[in-house]
Design a protein around this nucleic acid. Sequence first.
DNA 1: CATGAATGAGCCTTCATTCAT
DNA 2: GATGAATGAAGGCTCATTCAT
Lengths: 202, 202, 202, 202
Amino acid sequence: MAKQEASLPTKAEKSRNLILHSAAKLFREQGFSATTLRQIAAAARIEAGSIYYYFDSKEAILDEILDRGLRHVFESVKAAVKGAGQATYRRRIELAIEAHLVALLESSDFTSANIRIYGQLQEHLKKPHRPLRRAYARYWDKLFLDARKAGEIRADIEIEPLRIFVIGALNWTVEWFRLDSKDDVLKLARRTQLMVFDGIKK
Amino acid sequence: MAKQEASLPTKAEKSRNLILHSAAKLFREQGFSATTLRQIAAAARIEAGSIYYYFDSKEAILDEILDRGLRHVFESVKAAVKGAGQATYRRRIELAIEAHLVALLESSDFTSANIRIYGQLQEHLKKPHRPLRRAYARYWDKLFLDARKAGEIRADIEIEPLRIFVIGALNWTVEWFRLDSKDDVLKLARRTQLMVFDGIKK
Amino acid sequence: MAKQEASLPTKAEKSRNLILHSAAKLFREQGFSATTLRQIAAAARIEAGSIYYYFDSKEAILDEILDRGLRHVFESVKAAVKGAGQATYRRRIELAIEAHLVALLESSDFTSANIRIYGQLQEHLKKPHRPLRRAYARYWDKLFLDARKAGEIRADIEIEPLRIFVIGALNWTVEWFRLDSKDDVLKLARRTQLMVFDGIKK
Amino acid sequence: MAKQEASLPTKAEKSRNLILHSAAKLFREQGFSATTLRQIAAAARIEAGSIYYYFDSKEAILDEILDRGLRHVFESVKAAVKGAGQATYRRRIELAIEAHLVALLESSDFTSANIRIYGQLQEHLKKPHRPLRRAYARYWDKLFLDARKAGEIRADIEIEPLRIFVIGALNWTVEWFRLDSKDDVLKLARRTQLMVFDGIKK
DNA sequence: CATGAATGAGCCTTCATTCAT
DNA sequence: GATGAATGAAGGCTCATTCAT
């Protein structure tokens, strides 16, 4: 009962995590409502009924996946930016772009599931996650705002549309990107950084 | 499929179209499998059973929506580019961006439904639409390729990643953009064109 | 769509009623939660899913059964008493006893189901039916009160315990009485009337 | 089943009893099939799985409750009558009525659970308890028969319907009576005795 | 053309039960 | 003695689909 500190994951914790990972993968691939609990159970190699030992409902699974997914990108990006110390703002934003892409395409299925299915969920499923989503948006806004104040990006650019444009381009990768090697994501990141900052014109 | 030679739409054709539009809106909002035939029927103000007079199955409705949606953007973009005559390639691409956005966000729900749900569909539902999707991708590639040959965009940019980046940024708008007025879409288009060509750096 | 006056029951109305009667019988025999929709469907010779064409839920079926059941006894008793005209109060109460028993044991399964299962239902299922139950209790109370005022029953008898005693003795019959012929119920009624008024002592 | 010779109850016996009491209360309130083993376990402050250390199945719990419940009224009534010595038959029956009511409404939940749920159980669950039920009925029949022979109750009254009427009125109290104080049950008993013997007429 | 009625497969969920620890 | 973890059968309910009218 007492929570052990940094102890090995118990059997139960492993089962719980296996369910979450299986569900996240399926949600990302097929969407929330097209995914059945039997599919999740099969992927986790248990019976459908057993899922209810760990979760109250299909929605409870979704809830935890959405939360973990967003928290994961957010923390990755914050860590990357923090790690940049006093680099230029361009550099910081470049690192944020890379971190966002890595979290989305490599780390786990939580983030990609979140990005992919959130928009089509019913209102009551989205609601609890809105505060964190807003916080993440504000974090990027601050990054761009600081860069503009520092004169590193054009003064006539509005922050919000910019953020939407950039994150949109990043998020869309989830629709087509298939993981082959870490290099691929980094290469994709580099290209994206360049495109965002310098555009495509000669 | 529908027989017609510019005659007035019959009552049957009107019902058919109403079903398609109702379905497209719901598919875009909730996804394919979360949308029920009864919801579609209610939105079209008929009974669920009546849908089968016009369509063989739910999948048949989807099929037509996907097809119309993609055809619609594709034709809009081609028309816009053709209308530009011998303008610069930058101008042509700018018009393509605008046309894509207008088709996606304004014209109807077919295109937005297509963009939004395609990725999560089962393989057998995607398959028939792949040829057209590829053709559309090649059309953009040609646009960018010509621009590069003409020296209007940087020589070191690879075409495919560029196309993915641009269309991705455009498509993601479907996740957040809510139509208020035509101006908004055009403003969005102008900003996007600028960002794509000139980037954000000072 | 327009309600026809006293028209023949439509096919749909017949199905609906068949479901209700099948359910009432099973509820009375086994209780509410031990009865499955599949059992009800089988008894009504349809498929379980078809029940939902007529009812929103199992609870909706219960609701209508409870309502019909209580309404039925109530109206039977009122009609019987009214039919007695200006008879003595003893006579009126005797007729009420008979009417209650006939409704409970003969007329249909709605009343017996109601009497038998009400007490074990969850609070939220009972609640909507409380007003009518109270009204029925008050009706009996008035009957006894008038009889006491008229000096036909002993002055020292408290009305509420009396009503509870009498209705209790009547209702308990549902636990053991099995219908053979109309005579049986009437014989039972006569015995009960006698016992209630004259007691058993010599 | 439990081995014991007036020794103190072991821990195991206490657990077993706690399970039985918890179950009886829930069965009485909600019925047998609406009560889950997890509810019983929670009420007994153990885990659901642990119940199987003491009982083979949910039905085994029911079985013991039914048995204890009936045995308890039966013995109470016998003891009360026996304690009356050579009193009049009216007095003996009055004491039996009181004892039945006290057992039903006060002593424990076993008897009330039995009375309330027995009628809706499946045949195979009722069967083992029928002999004892019949014996209890015969016991009352004998009481009334003796009273009639002794000329204390009217000669024209048939014994079986009388017993059914009286026990029915007593048992129905379980549907509405809520325990407040011992006096209440005794008051209820006195009223019932009076009503049974003298009826309500002036 | 359109619907009302019904189907049956399958969904999420519950629950008595099992068993290794 | 007792539990945590898991099972699998079944329950209420939904939904695409069918078809006589």
